[in-house]
């Protein structure tokens, strides 16, 4: 097997503040494979932004190491680290464009840093602006662009030096839902067409769902769980995972737990299939849907739904038997679990 492009080894980070040390990251171990889109999700303050800055050593970790293509960042000199950063583009929530430079000169900026001749840099920049669909705004200044356009410029700029990895720190958090969708599509396209490995930091499950292959959930400075996005959606193991996927519904459902309930798992059958309606019609018994978290991931229904079974035992049994017969996975939900 190929060496993962990024290996995070026993990484920890402690900030020294006026109020004593603050632990931002602890025992982080992650591997990102070349060519994948890897997501890191967590609530604000979980440490995800610090983690992405440790990957390119903008923040120097206090423990552990990061290996980029097998080379230890910890043992590099500052100069070597700067050279390594040129293989890792980064985009930000607030875009961070140079306000006094126009679009094309922003995209040329990283090329200028490594001494690429001006003409060559301009040609490369125009090519990238075509990729992100902004060639006709090459002479505009950032103040004249919308948020989505600014992020496109930032993406073009981050890709100028042909990096192997693109780090995205909450890259869509300042954008509206439509623009978010477009930017995510663009990232996916860049990953597919250029083979750039993408590391996405976000607090939104919808971002992970839209583009990521694998995801790590980070909670209180530690990794809570890591896995394929489809697996974690079906069956989140950690409390924080359930909370992120179910959202607030998980809490509301607590109130209804007196009656016998089951969790129905959607593990990828056709999303067009009306599972619950069929079940109700077949069993001639009403069920009470307490909460549902299902997503249509590339035409497959993924997720889960908790339903309260009918009060009379016979009807309840009919529902159970129906689910078994059509091979829909389910499990009984106990008093204290969701």
């Amino acid at each position: 097997m190929e060496t993962p492009i990024i290996q995070i080894r026993d990484l920890g980070k402690e900030f020294r503040t006026a109020n004593g040390p603050v632990r931002a990251l602890q025992d982080i171990n992650l591997e990102v494979d070349a060519g994948e889109i890897f997501g890191i999700i967590g609530l604000s303050g979980a440490g995800k932004s610090t983690l992405v800055r440790c990957v390119n050593y903008l923040e120097v970790p206090t423990e552990g190491d990061v290996l980029f293509e097998g080379r230890s960042m910890a043992s590099m000199t500052e100069k070597e680290r700067r050279a390594t950063r040129q293989s890792m583009g980064m985009i930000f929530q607030q875009f961070n464009l140079l306000a006094q430079r126009n679009v094309i000169r922003n995209v040329c900026f990283p090329l200028e840093l490594i001494g690429v001749p001006k003409k060559e840099a301009r040609e490369r920049a125009m090519e990238l602006l075509r990729t992100v669909g902004l060639e006709e705004r090459a002479l505009a200044y950032p103040a004249q662009l919308s948020g989505g356009q600014k992020q496109r410029v930032a993406i073009a700029r981050a890709l100028a030096t042909n990096p192997k990895v693109l780090l995205c720190d909450e890259a869509t958090s300042a954008l509206d839902p439509d623009t978010t969708k477009q930017i995510l599509e663009l990232l996916k396209e860049i990953n597919r067409a250029m083979g750039v490995t993408i590391l996405v930091i976000t607090h939104e499950m919808s971002v992970i769902e839209a583009i990521c292959d694998r995801v790590a959930i980070i909670d209180q400075s530690r990794i809570a769980e890591v896995g394929a996005v489809s697996e974690i959606f079906v069956d989140p193991k950690s409390a924080i995972g359930r909370r992120l996927i179910m959202g607030e519904a998980a809490h509301q459902a607590e109130a209804f737990k007196q009656q016998r309930s089951i969790r129905i798992i959607f593990d990828g059958r056709e999303s067009a299939e009306p599972v619950i309606s069929n079940m109700v019609l077949a069993c001639n018994a009403p069920v009470n849907i307490m909460y549902a978290a299902t997503r249509d991931i590339q035409g497959k229904a993924m997720g889960q739904m908790v339903v309260q079974l009918p009060e009379d035992a016979a009807s309840a049994e009919r529902v159970i038997r129906y689910l078994r017969s059509v091979r829909i996975p389910y499990e009984e939900v106990g008093e204290n679990e969701i």
């Binding site: 607030q94 140079l98 306000a99 900026f109 840093l113």
Partner: peptide, 26 residues
Amino acid sequence: DAGVIEAAQSMGASTWQIIWKVLLPE
């Protein structure tokens, strides 16, 4: 904005490059 300087650092800019190409012109 500190973010602009951070962006330059993420591209591998040296201290001198940040002073000349970011701090002063911006």
